[in-house]
């Protein structure tokens, strides 16, 4: 039975490793891949009046840039490897949004790269991979 794998992808080295690993698994097991790109966003942040007026325009630009610069190049690669692939771009809290995507798409697995930070910021705010491991509705594979 074909399953869906959500791969959290932000264009970084770590997320490339996660995607490569997921492609290998998917190929072996006949699964399909959903590349999920989340733009960090909080509806409770503060903006200047000028930023408010330009927000819709900026959002369209950000979505277009993400699609062109981050997703398109890798989609081609996954397709060439013979794995069925779709993409999702969303705004929100990164870990929560990836979980939401997994639920909405009825995915079986989440793959995510580990950034490897161990600094103070991570201790205070937590990491995406760490949070996902705690709250994900499906098994999570963290790729080092």
């Amino acid at each position: 039975m074909s399953r869906k794998i959500v791969v959290g992808f932000d264009g970084s080295e770590a997320s490339r490793r996660a995607l490569d690993f997921a492609v290998g698994r998917a190929k072996a097991q006949g699964d399909s891949i959903i590349i999920a790109h989340v733009l960090e966003w909080s509806p409770y942040s503060f903006l200047t009046p000028e930023e408010l007026a330009e927000r819709h325009k900026r959002r369209n630009e950000e979505l277009e840039r993400a699609e062109k610069a981050i997703l398109q190049p890798v989609v081609k690669r996954v397709e060439d490897a013979g794995v069925p692939v779709t993409t999702v771009i969303k705004y929100g809290h990164i870990a929560e949004t990836i979980c939401q995507i997994a639920t909405d798409e009825d995915a079986a697995l989440i793959f995510i790269g580990r950034m490897g930070h161990s600094g103070l910021a991570t201790r205070i705010f937590g990491s995406v991979a760490g949070t996902l491991a705690q709250v994900a509705p499906v098994p999570v594979t963290i790729v080092p």
């Binding site: 733009l39 966003w41 509806p43 409770y44 942040s45 503060f46 903006l47 200047t48 009046p49 408010l52 927000r55 819709h56 959002r59 950000e62 979505l63 969303k90 705004y91 929100g92 939401q100």
Partner: peptide, 25 residues
């Protein structure tokens, strides 16, 4: 608090943001 906001509109100006900006004025 965003209870009536469509999650698909995330990334657009929220009610909270409009209120916060107007308030700081």
């Amino acid at each position: 608090s965003g209870k009536y906001s469509d999650p698909n509109d995330a990334g657009e100006v929220s009610h909270f943001q409009a209120l916060a900006t107007a308030l700081s004025g």
